[in-house]
């Protein structure tokens, strides 16, 4: 049964990586800007539907990446400018307004694409043998890509001067403002970055899952629980959160059943929130 062990381990690893990808955008928006973004799931849908549109237009799947950046970037800009900007430091209002936004985006997707399921062809089919176990090539590619994306963001966040400014803004907005940082612009860029990350997650995952306008909600809730457990503001925390949630759900699904895994994730999230409410905002 060695191959089963390898297979299950790869699955859990994949689950953790894909969850990390899914939560990344929310980690940026909720973690850095403190915006409880209930429309995160719909940003993921936007990326997935951009990929679908590219396929419909007969374009290569890979064109969807720049396209997603353009679509999510401009939508992110408009949203920040006309909605989110008025709501910083009003956590409950943001929550409620982005909830409204999520309904709006979902309905607009329905209007544009219909309510049906879209099917995206796998850009890379076939499987690769790992220790005698065949594993889908696209999943492996995806995991590699996530490592690069997350690694790149970590490097950027730790090294670049733009990231320094973002950190300064989060740490003390008034001070940052007074030393000449344009915090408004920085916040806007951070928000756009978060939306784009969510969109890219959608584009990357779309070939593996079902794509339909209401797909976002599940991603939203899972992302929140990851942040709740791992904390935000640093990628290691995000990874821990994804590992705990993904490991728990997948592990219990293997050992007991999926419903047990589902219950366990919710209960663990509740316990984390209860015992360590500030954990969300702790930074290393």
């Amino acid at each position: 049964m060695e191959s089963l062990l390898v297979f299950n381990s790869l699955n859990i690893l994949y689950e953790v990586f894909s969850l990390l990808l899914v939560a990344l955008g929310l980690g940026i928006i909720f973690g850095l800007l403190r915006v409880m973004n209930m429309a995160h799931g719909e940003f993921i849908s936007l990326g997935a539907f951009t990929a679908v549109s590219c396929q419909m237009a007969g374009l290569s799947y890979w064109v969807a990446f720049p396209a997603t950046l353009v679509v999510c970037g401009s939508i992110g800009f408009l949203l920040e400018r006309f909605l989110i900007r008025q709501l910083y430091n009003r956590p409950f209002d943001t929550l409620v307004a982005t909830w409204g936004l999520s309904i709006l985006l979902r309905k607009l997707l329905e209007l544009g694409f219909g309510k049906g399921y879209q099917s995206l062809e796998l850009p890379l089919s076939g499987s690769v043998s790992i220790w005698g176990t065949g594993y889908p090539a696209y999943r492996l590619l995806l995991m590699g890509f996530i490592v690069i994306l997350v690694g790149g963001l970590t490097l950027w966040y730790n090294r670049s001067s733009a990231a320094m400014r973002v950190k300064a803004m989060i740490g003390n907005p008034e001070l940052a403002e007074s030393v000449g940082l344009n915090t408004q612009r920085l916040a806007c860029l951070t928000f756009i970055c978060g939306v784009c990350c969510a969109g890219l997650a959608g584009t990357l995952l779309a070939p593996l899952y079902s794509v339909y306008p209401a797909m976002g909600l599940d991603y939203l809730l899972r992302s929140f629980f990851i942040l709740v457990i791992g904390g935000v503001g640093n990628l290691w925390g995000l990874f821990t959160g994804a590992a705990i949630i993904g490991g728990l759900q997948s592990g219990l699904a293997v050992l007991v059943n999926q419903t047990a895994g589902y219950f366990a994730v919710l209960i663990v999230a509740i316990i984390f929130l209860w015992r360590n409410p500030d954990g969300i905002f702790h930074r290393a």
Binding site: F92, F263, L273
Partner: peptide, 17 residues
């Protein structure tokens, strides 16, 4: 803060299931 809202949200999902 938001932690309480999130707990109650998780509780509603738990209750539904």
């Amino acid at each position: 803060g938001p932690y309480f809202s999130l707990i109650t949200l998780a509780l509603s999902m738990l209750a539904f299931q």
